[in-house]
Design a protein around this nucleic acid. Structure first.
Lengths: 200, 200, 200, 200
DNA sequence: TATGAATGAGCGTTCATTCAT
DNA sequence: TATGAATGAACGCTCATTCAT
């Protein structure tokens, strides 16, 4: 009866998703280590037991955040890379997309690059492997452009990708919504700087 | 007698420096939160009390690492920016230097961008202020080049600096000494990509 | 199985009460500052975590001891003050009762007057407010007697109450059970000295 | 040279006295346990080594505070008790004097009754023995008055002394300088209440 | 007389996790 | 599915005291 009142409304996301959303926000705000399981479950309106029913550990929460974000970005990249257009066009589209996606999931993004090293070794390796695959796919586009002569060939492609991803991964440290530049504009400028840097 | 044997040899660095060196290495390896004060002082061969004689808290250790690194980079930048050469030449020199310095103090560098958010609010603000001053000095060089017509003017200078520093700040996440490319080569390539990206 | 044997028997007081009882005894014996949380939980047969599940801090333990004692004394005083009899009769009854209650909860009483100053400022103020209300109720009886002419009016009532309570609050520093005089006898003598002192 | 400037001026009290004065004030304000040796020596403008040169331990400071206060009160009492006048007159004078002295050395007084239990067993016993002698001398005056018929004999003399000293020892918990009543007036009222209470 | 670096032992508190219900 | 009492291990920090100088 009284409990029924606290039950989730039909439109609410299921508990695991709610826990992940809450955890993502709190990890981004206060850091993984400074957010206790107690705080997460309180913010989600449940108890610890409920959380441990769905997630084996606090680490699992973090891993799941990564996993979902990586899955999203990978599927985007594959769609773009396998699509039509020159290598340069597809690289530009991919660059803009990864930035747009990052801005749209900024909390998860911030957590990713700040807390990855806190995962257990196994999990960390798993994430890195996924990340590496993503990186290599992106690099493939650069190499394609170099072979076509659209990009300078004197810069190692993997280094160029590190360069660009480095710039992308740091946006969470300085970007604040509502600033002078909109996220979309920043994405375009970043893509410009990257593509122009690769030009002959 | 036995104690005398444990005393520091005349050539050894003083204890505060030794503690900072040890802490920097351990924070970089295992993270700030996963390194206990006990581990630090054991690695330095002293007791906790000795550490707390010189540093008010574990946070102070972290702050001091930042402070020294920032001081070093700032002095380098000022020397270069105030030196001879065109804006483009000085910007290139500054870009190469910040990369070289980062590679040379990679542990402190890694700690910096991974653990800054763990500092107390006051300290964090202090570091950010120092960092901002550095950023603005660098941006000044970009703007100078834009006015001279050496660089494209359609990209906001501060965004370009964020872009480059983002790339730089991430090197600790993928660079491993002894890899295919030497640190010097990476520095040159990164500077190329950045400067070329700014070109008209 | 083995754990079941350590579980509390049905008749045992619940853990929070057991912890409070143990803490009261130890604080009285060795002082608040010289009693570690570890000692308390060991004496209660649980771990620290269990204690911190019920009490937010060691201070909370102290506060709760005060709070319960004050609640007890306040309810007694109200019953007596609102009861039948002349002001003098009710004041005497209240005086004897506060002494009896103090002897009966001597440990809590000793802790109270020895460790109140160790509480956090907020908590200390809360206790003082409760204490002040009790004091004022008692003073009301003195003033009533003064108005009726039963007591001398040349002594400020609040001073007389300070005087009496001072005497009462110190019994823990010299009274030892099993001495020459029983607690009841002491209560009567103290009430005599107080009431006689107030007489015209 | 520069040190000479910090040397004590001819009129300043010697260091041990200064340390005791500072310690007394701080113990009264924050409690013995919450005042560190470091804070004391800083407030006195010296270093730890200097303090440990004069006092063997932090406990010694506390003991010395007690010892000086007790010596003062004892000498006063002896002078009065051995002086002229009836037992009642001398008891009243002694009562007023112990109150006046207490008000005049309120900090030491507060520390005394709050922190005595923190002393080592030996020291505590030593203080108690001194205290007992004082108590017995005072009791002698009560008994003298009882034998002379000036005071009621149905109240044990030692209990009456406990009663009065109890009231006296608590003044530090409620008296604040600058209040409605001056210390002298309070002393008189307290003596009145005590003597009147003893009257037949 | 006085310094101050260093010790060593202890303390209050936190927290992810488990498990009987 | 979910609760919440309880565990156990660790952690940052404090502080009276010592001692070479």
């Amino acid at each position: 009866m009284t409990q029924a009142a606290e039950r989730r409304a039909p439109g609410d996301p299921p508990l695991p998703d709610r826990l992940l959303a809450v955890a993502t926000r709190m990890f981004a705000e206060k850091g993984f280590g400074n957010t206790s399981v107690q705080e997460i479950v309180e913010a989600a309106g449940v108890t610890k037991g409920a959380m441990y029913h769905y997630f084996g550990s606090k680490d699992d929460l973090l891993y799941e955040i990564y996993h979902r974000l990586l899955g999203l970005q990978t599927s985007h990249l594959e769609r773009i890379a396998d699509g039509p257009g020159t290598a340069e066009e597809r690289l530009r589209a991919a660059a803009v997309d990864v930035l747009d996606t990052s801005f749209r999931h900024l909390d998860a993004f911030v957590v990713f690059f700040r807390s990855l090293h806190l995962l257990s070794r196994d999990r960390r390796e798993a994430v890195r492997a996924e990340r590496r695959a993503y990186h290599e796919r992106f690099r493939g586009l650069v190499e394609e452009g170099q072979r076509e002569g659209a990009f300078r060939a004197d810069v190692p492609a993997d280094l160029a990708v590190h360069f660009f991803f480095g710039a992308v991964h740091q946006i969470g440290t300085w970007y604040r919504p509502g600033g002078r530049l909109e996220a979309e504009a920043i994405s375009e400028h970043y893509a410009d700087l990257f593509l122009n840097g690769l030009r002959n």
